[in-house]
Simulated scan of single mutants.
Amino acid sequence: MNRPIRLMTAALAASAALLLTACGSGGGDKDSSDKIEGAGGGGSKASASPSEKPHGAKRPEIKLPAEFEANFAGWTNSDPKLQGVLDDGKEELRAKYAAIIEANPDSDAVAFYDSGASLTTARKWIKGFTDTDDSLIGSIKAYSPKVNVSGKDAAVFFYCVDERKASTKNSKTKKVTATPDTPESVLQYRARLTKSEQGVWQTVSLETVPGGCK
């Protein structure tokens, strides 16, 4: 999945620097693997119809096709506030994957979980796939989430994404390009989030560091 790494580095690394203190606080307190709801089901479209989720607000229902799985390990926390950040951070990433597979840079689900600079760069990243008719197959693993909440409505969120079992597939030529099996294919995501008036933790800035997770 060369393209995700290349575009993440170019488009997202320019986001504002984050509080590195988040690395040492507030991580998940379980190591169980959480296979994303809907990852193995049916169609290739991601529905943005509202569904009632925890934390009060109506959130988009995001479905991924059987050809692509997003697996999350350790994304649970006994603190409800930290769990809220984990839940919305997870859906933010899933929304972007679904938008790539849908070939929809203007996805409502992405706009629900991203705002400001993060929404701009997310759409740019997704458009990098849609402009060349590329989609995603295979699987990724997101793990080692660490959250630091400041006050009532600000958080910093770090996590790792292993892309080595994912590939891009061109919808026209059917050519599959595998992600290189190198340390650079394991990225550290560094996000800053704010809580909206509706109670949604929205990502407002994001940078990625290829090889940042050892």
Rank of each mutant, 00 (worst) to 15 (best):
M1Y: 10
N2C: 00
N2V: 09
R3H: 02
R6F: 10
L7Q: 01
T9V: 10
A10W: 02
A10G: 07
A11L: 15
A14I: 13
S15R: 03
A16G: 07
T21S: 15
G24I: 00
S25P: 05
G26Y: 07
G26Q: 09
G27E: 06
D29P: 06
D29A: 03
D29C: 08
S32A: 14
S32E: 14
S32I: 12
S33E: 13
K35R: 13
E37G: 12
G41S: 14
G41C: 09
G41A: 13
G42H: 14
S47V: 12
A48L: 00
S51G: 12
E52T: 15
E52F: 13
H55Y: 15
H55R: 14
G56R: 11
P60V: 11
P60A: 10
K63V: 14
A66L: 13
E67M: 12
F68L: 11
E69P: 02
E69N: 14
E69D: 15
A70I: 10
N71V: 15
A73D: 15
A73G: 06
G74T: 09
G74Q: 10
G74Y: 09
N77G: 05
N77T: 04
S78C: 03
P80W: 06
G84F: 02
V85E: 09
L86S: 07
L86E: 10
D87A: 15
D87M: 12
G89W: 04
G89R: 06
E91G: 03
L93G: 13
A95Q: 09
A95F: 10
Y97S: 13
Y97G: 08
A99P: 06
I100C: 03
I100V: 15
I100M: 06
I101L: 09
D106Y: 02
D108K: 14
D108R: 10
A111D: 10
A111T: 00
Y113I: 03
Y113V: 02
A117V: 04
S118K: 08
L119H: 01
L119A: 12
T120G: 01
T120S: 10
A122H: 01
K124Q: 11
K124Y: 02
W125A: 02
I126Q: 00
G128M: 04
F129P: 03
F129I: 03
T130Q: 01
D133F: 03
D133M: 02
I137A: 05
A142I: 04
Y143F: 15
Y143G: 01
Y143R: 09
P145F: 04
P145E: 03
N148Y: 13
G151L: 10
K152Q: 13
K152V: 11
D153I: 05
A155I: 09
A155W: 08
V156D: 15
F157K: 03
C160P: 05
D162L: 08
E163G: 05
R164I: 11
R164K: 15
T168H: 04
T168Y: 07
K169Q: 11
S171T: 14
A178T: 10
T179H: 01
D181R: 12
T182Q: 11
P183R: 00
E184M: 07
S185E: 02
V186T: 14
L187H: 11
L187V: 14
Q188N: 01
Q188M: 12
R192A: 13
K195F: 07
E197P: 00
E197K: 15
G199H: 06
V200H: 05
W201Y: 07
Q202Y: 07
T203N: 05
T203Y: 00
T203M: 06
V204M: 04
V204Y: 05
S205W: 03
E207G: 14
P210H: 02
G211L: 04
G212H: 04
G212E: 04
G212K: 07
